[in-house]
Design a protein around this nucleic acid. Structure first.
Lengths: 136, 136
DNA sequence: GCCTATGATAGGCACATGCATACTAATCTG
DNA sequence: CAGATTAGTATGCATGTGCCTATCATAGGC
């Protein structure tokens, strides 16, 4: 029973993260997946909804209602693609960017708190290794 | 949009881990939570089921059926606590230990594969940091 | 010896998930 | 132009989850 499972470690960490993030997201009227969509769109607008769904690992059927909500809140915009009228491009509105920035500030503060015991070098090393694992 | 969210990183990693672990567990006839129970019991037998549930972060109601299954498969044993007959101690059977060892070998191999690009020093550093985060 | 608290168990509720199907509009292929 | 493919959308199903309530046996406090 030497070393502990990665699965168990990551599982416990994810639980802590979710528990800490949930109230912050609630405070800004965002769901986990809603936040995921905004975050992704901040990096790059989506050429179509299917691409967005696969990019964030969400079900394309479920994405519809999620986008409906975000659009109704004025955070994202679905616009037709003139080149291929089947596609609907999705991008952030200014309000979406603002909302994201606000949540992100809260989340960053929470994460800083979580990493309080880590030196700057450790944090860099950790995020670098996590990124490698995530993109494997 | 400087650094990426911890939540997003951990989320993607967890997805990869689950996708890789699921078939291994299936191959040994274990569910995620079943594996979690066996792993925990290998570290220490549970004084009662409630303690076990909270230790692994599982719902105490749901634990019943899970233990029923594990017991029926001969992997764990529920035995009365002579000191307090409300309690039911839970511990691994030899078959449970054997099953756990088998799954664990598979999982360890999978994890080694996942960490293929990491040096021994990096792995140590990673697990040390993850443990700190998990036990915050 | 009563009253309260605790552990094991059963059951239900609301919700999110992955997965599958179906339908329409638009595009592409031959 | 006809047939196949793709994007968006709606919907349904089985499953798993957290949470909450109820019941029963046992313990412990007073």
């Amino acid at each position: 029973m030497q070393r502990e499972d990665l699965g168990s470690l990551f599982g416990r960490i994810i639980r802590r993260l979710i528990a800490a993030e949930k109230p912050l997201l609630d405070g800004h009227g965002l769901s986990m997946w809603g936040y995921g969509v905004l975050t992704h769109l901040a990096k790059q607008s989506a050429a179509n909804q299917l691409a967005l769904a696969t990019a964030i690992g969400y079900d394309k059927s479920r994405l519809i209602a999620l986008l409906d909500d975000l659009e109704q809140d004025g955070l994202v915009l679905r616009e037709p693609d003139p080149a291929d009228r089947r596609n609907r491009r999705v991008r952030l509105t200014p309000a979406g960017k603002a909302r994201l920035a606000a949540v992100r500030a809260d989340i960053r503060a929470m994460e800083d708190d979580l990493l309080a015991g880590f030196t700057a070098a450790e944090r860099r090393s950790l995020t670098r290794m996590l990124t490698r694992l995530a993109n494997g």
